[in-house]
């Protein structure tokens, strides 16, 4: 089993998986790296460039991990969006959608 999964079925992509948690972890680290790295690099302090480089690597890694899953979630969801929008319009008119009932 691969450490990072990059191929999903639509049903699997819909579940919250390890790859989501990895993106959740990498994303704040990348922001912290950007904040510190850009400020120090602007002042040509060498550690700033190192931190900035790490932040960029984290961003690339984050996208590599999460993008296949996000793509599939989006593709599958958009197929059904029209029906969901109709349901939303019923809600604003105080009508409950029927499709979830027994």
């Amino acid at each position: 089993m691969k450490l990072i999964r990059r191929e999903w079925t639509p049903a699997e992509a819909d579940e919250w998986a390890r790859e989501d948690w990895l993106a959740i972890l990498l994303s704040p680290l990348a922001y912290i790296g950007l904040a510190v790295g850009v400020a120090l690099a602007m002042l040509l302090i060498p550690i700033g460039f190192v931190i900035l480089a790490i932040a960029i690597i984290l961003i690339i890694l984050m996208h590599w991990v999460i993008d296949p899953k996000l793509k599939l979630i989006s593709t599958e969801y958009e197929k059904k969006q029209k029906q969901y929008l109709e349901s939303l319009e019923k809600t604003i008119r105080w009508e409950d959608a029927e499709w979830t009932k027994d």
């Binding site: 850009v38 793509k71 989006s74």
Partner: peptide
């Protein structure tokens, strides 16, 4: 945003620019 993926990236990258902007100001 046109898809779930576009929504995620719009929020992430818009905020990344905000953070970079703050650091430019800071220097």
């Amino acid at each position: 945003a046109r898809t779930v993926r576009d929504a995620s990236y719009s929020i992430w990258w818009g905020t990344a620019l905000v953070i970079i902007r703050n650091s430019l100001w800071a220097a």
